[in-house]
Design a protein around this nucleic acid. Structure first.
Length: 816
RNA sequence: GCUGAGGUGGUGGAAUGGCAGACACACAGGUCUCAGAAACCUGUUCCCGAAAGGGUAAAUAUGGGUUCAAAUCCCAUCCUCAGCACCA
């Protein structure tokens, strides 16, 4: 047989698959459906090894279930709007659309070269007006349902570029383009009321048994439901109260100061009373340059007292100072806290720095609030009438008292914030709204959709949104009163685009609706969703939310979009995530040319279990390449009279051995792919089968066992290295593609062995092994052990305290 | 800082309470060859030993605990990674 030529073989089969349309799929009520989905990629330009890993996992799942006889939906598309295209436009003077299209073309070519079994007929791109028409349609539906609203929110602002900056465009507190200090600025922006679904998003976790526990746990903490009390603190000499939220109302007697976030409106309202306003304003400006992470993670707490302003502790009736400090965030609770330094470490550190009294109100076993905040349970002290109450009971007792006194009420609070969806940028879905001086905000009428993104615009270096400059875009007539009005120029967050694409795949070309409900109800929910762990919270919560909205619009009948989730670990390069912006990307091109798609796929899956982070190293890829050639050469071996491998007699396999190993391998590979996604161990057991087949004695001399085992081997390998397997399959004279051939089955009775080797431990140390038959009783096993010379040496002159036999696993003897 | 993962030979990893290191990589030695490549064979955690074999207290980040038995369960500490809401 000639040497394996991956370039020729891979091209041949990719062409055959394409021409025969075997991966193009339709609804078929007679067949069980299987929807396999990978997270929508951003077309950055090149496929890197992280992509290769993600899609290899997906393709194997799709191919495996196809061979299992299911009707498999598996396709691809592009999350094509976003900041990098705009950055490229500014830097290289290339239109975002052109840049994006080029990247898509390039990446699509690479996906094809990898031999993924996508139904390309269903491909979508979120920047295609045919797609974003429906993104806009959903936005209007949500507006009609009251799920879209406007409010002021903070943005990063560069005053020299006169533009809003993304977090990523700020490097060490300065603008990426001009290097000047950034600041915060309030803008009226568009929000989606995801918090209306907060409870259901939590409850829905019960239906997500096929999700990793860690992701559910991360989402739970992200949604952050907590029960607490909203309390109004009086400010001396001021008409308005300071509202706070606390989950520990039982510590109210220990409140010795208050902290408001630097963005809190009350600072401005109290301006006339604050004696050191200049100092406060300076602090606010400085904290505006920090990110939330910097603010909350700095070890040294900072802040400024609002001199001349005091609040009143409603429990102790004592006056307490008010500070502003950036460790309190505007986005959580009320943006203000009652600080209890004795029982919150952050407050404790702040109190120590500013010399504020620490009053212990919960006494625990080892509590010493002079040294550290005490955050555990205990007995209330220094708490007036509540002194002596157990802290576990105090939440209810004290919060009832607060409600009765009339200065607070029990509420449920969520960490989850409403979704800020507007962006002051060009390359995104235009928000389909019109501002009319007479009628207010009016949605664009459905028949006018999509609101097209104008393309013939100048990309200047000033950073101003081209949409704002385009008169043709901005100036419109009000749909209601027909007077002059202006079009909204904000575009949508790209997370919006990727919140419903999985439903569009069910019916990608529909011009009359986002998708046909019957089709979506056939394919949805997604059986297997695959993507990076970094999306555990944001994308996976947004998509779940959007799906529930689609359900409430009557478009779909299920509650959850993704039944099973596999979160793959990142492919990193020397420890940090591969990303184009960081410039640490390993492209797939070189590997594909040198070794081919099958080797690349085999290698990324063999290198590590999919959930684990994988630090890139190409060492080992040679071994995968050798393995593929070894499988290829086996074709001749199984048909020849002699094995080519010269091995010592002991390791040679006979007919029973080889059949048992084969059935075992089928069982192991099936379970590894189907249940555990342990492709690395599936591959190593296939390698073991190959090794066994090389050391099989008979091959062509023995009634075709060798051929039978080899064919099963090729079937097992088909989802992983499909090109190689198709080629070998064809050599056997099969006309039908292996890609749609039935998956092999195994026979448990062949796997079962009658006698096995059992290790013997004495006092926890391995001292020998015995051969026993599987169905022996403990007594019988003991007899065998007691006749074993090696074991007896250790037992001589000792007393057996305990004899343990774990069936078919181990013998453990305890001696004195 | 908060939340969630992870730490096993020279390397990737296997083993989820029962033989630590499967399967590979790398390395070393060998067969074939004029030679090389390829292919094939043998060895390879560490320590002692030429080997057979041994380790009564070697070894799964570190220290402690539970158990006949711990990489696996519990507690504490250290380190690495991911996410933290305008990167996608």
């Amino acid at each position: 047989m000639i040497e394996y030529n991956h370039l020729k073989v891979e091209k041949k089969w990719q062409k055959k698959w394409f021409e025969s349309k075997i991966f193009e799929i339709k609804e078929d009520s007679k067949k069980e459906k299987y929807y396999c989905l990978e997270m929508l990629p951003y077309p950055s330009g090149n496929l890197h090894m992280g992509h290769v890993r993600n899609y290899s996992i997906g393709d194997i799942c799709a191919r495996f279930h196809r061979m299992k006889g299911k009707n498999v939906l598996y396709t691809a598309g592009w999350d094509a709007f976003g900041l990098p295209a705009e950055n490229a436009a500014i830097k290289n003077k290339i239109h975002p659309k052109k840049w994006t299209k080029q990247n898509i073309a390039c990446m699509k070519e690479q996906l094809k070269v990898l031999g993924f079994s996508y139904d390309w007929n269903r491909e979508i791109s979120t920047c295609d007006p045919k797609y974003y028409k429906w993104t806009q349609w959903f936005f209007i539906k949500m507006w009609e349902k009251g799920l879209v609203f406007r409010k002021n929110a903070n943005v990063n602002w560069c005053s020299s570029c006169q533009t809003v900056l993304a977090n990523e465009q700020i490097l060490n507190g300065v603008c990426w383009r001009c290097g000047s200090h950034t600041e915060h600025r309030d803008l009226e922006q568009w929000f989606i009321k995801i918090t209306d679904y907060a409870d259901e998003l939590l409850e829905g976790h019960k239906q997500l048994g096929g999700w990793p526990e860690q992701v559910l746990s991360m989402q739970k903490n992200w949604i952050g439901k907590s029960y607490g009390v909203e309390i109004n603190f009086k400010i001396s000499g001021f008409c308005k109260n300071l509202k706070i939220f606390t989950t520990c109302p039982d510590t109210i007697f220990g409140v010795t100061f208050m902290v408001v976030a630097p963005e809190h409106e009350i600072i401005n309202e109290l301006k006339f009373k604050i004696k050191n306003y200049e100092q406060v304003a300076k602090y606010i400006l400085a904290s505006g340059r920090k990110s939330n992470i910097e603010r909350t993670s700095s070890k040294e707490k900072t802040g400024v007292r609002l001199e001349g302003v005091n609040a009143l502790n409603p429990a102790t009736k004592k006056e307490i100072p008010i500070f502003t400090a950036d460790y309190v965030l505007m986005g959580y609770g009320k943006g203000a806290i009652m600080a209890v330094p004795a029982h919150d470490q952050r407050d404790w550190e702040f109190a120590k720095k500013f010399d504020i009294p620490v009053i212990e109100v919960i006494k625990g076993n080892n509590s010493d609030t002079n040294k550290h905040a005490y955050e555990d349970e205990g007995i209330l002290v220094n708490s007036g009438e509540f002194t002596g109450v157990k802290s576990v009971d105090a939440f209810n007792i004290v919060s009832n008292w607060i409600e009765k006194q009339g200065f607070g009420k029990k509420i449920v609070n969520f960490k989850l914030k409403d979704w800020l969806v507007s962006r002051q940028r060009y390359w995104g879905v235009p928000i389909p709204m019109i501002h009319c001086d007479h009628c207010g905000i009016i949605p664009v009428s459905e028949k006018e959709l999509p609101v097209l993104l104008p393309e013939d615009l100048e990309f200047t270096r000033t950073g101003k949104s081209p949409l704002k400059i385009s008169k043709a875009f901005v100036n419109v007539k009000c749909p209601k009163c027909d007077k002059d009005a202006s079009r909204e120029t904000d575009t949508m967050d790209t997370f919006v685009d990727s919140s419903w694409y999985y439903a569009r795949y069910c019916d990608s070309h529909n011009d009359n609706a986002p998708f046909d409900s019957a089709k979506a109800n056939y394919w949805m929910p997604v059986n297997q969703y695959i993507g990076g762990i970094e999306h555990a919270c944001m994308h996976l919560i947004y998509a779940r939310f959007w799906f529930k909205v689609m359900r409430d619009l009557g478009l779909i009948k299920y509650d959850e979009p993704f039944v099973n989730l596999l979160t793959q670990g990142m492919v990193t390069l020397s420890g940090s995530a591969m990303s184009k912006s960081k410039g640490n990307v390993v492209n797939s091109d070189e590997i594909l040319i040198k070794y081919g798609a099958d080797t690349a796929r085999l290698f990324v899956l063999f290198a590590a279990p999919p959930q684990k982070q994988f630090d890139w190293s190409s060492s080992g890829i040679e071994g995968c390449w050798r393995f593929i050639n070894r499988v290829w050469r086996l074709f001749d071996v199984v048909r020849s009279a002699k094995p080519i491998t010269i091995t010592d007699i002991a390791s040679q396999k006979n007919k029973d051995d080889i059949l048992r190993i084969m059935h075992k391998t089928v069982k192991k590979v099936t379970a590894d792919i189907e249940k555990e996604f342990q492709f690395n161990t599936a591959i190593s057991s296939i390698m073991e089968l190959v090794n066994a087949l090389y050391s099989y004695k008979y091959h062509a001399n023995d009634d075709g066992v060798s051929l039978e085992v080899y064919k099963v081997l090729i079937l097992l390998l088909a989802p992983i290295t499909p090109h190689l397997c198709e080629e070998i399959w064809e050599k056997f004279g099969n006309n039908e593609c292996i890609s749609i051939h039935a998956w092999p089955v195994f026979d448990e009775s062949v796997i079962k062995e009658s006698s096995i080797e059992i290790p013997v431990q004495i006092n926890g140390k391995l001292k020998g092994r015995i051969i026993a038959s599987v169905d022996m009783s403990e007594e019988e096993v003991k007899k065998v052990v007691m006749f074993d010379k090696k074991i007896l040496v250790h037992l001589k002159g000792k007393q057996i305290v305990k004899f343990i036999y774990v069936k078919s696993k181990i013998v453990a003897i305890v001696i004195k």
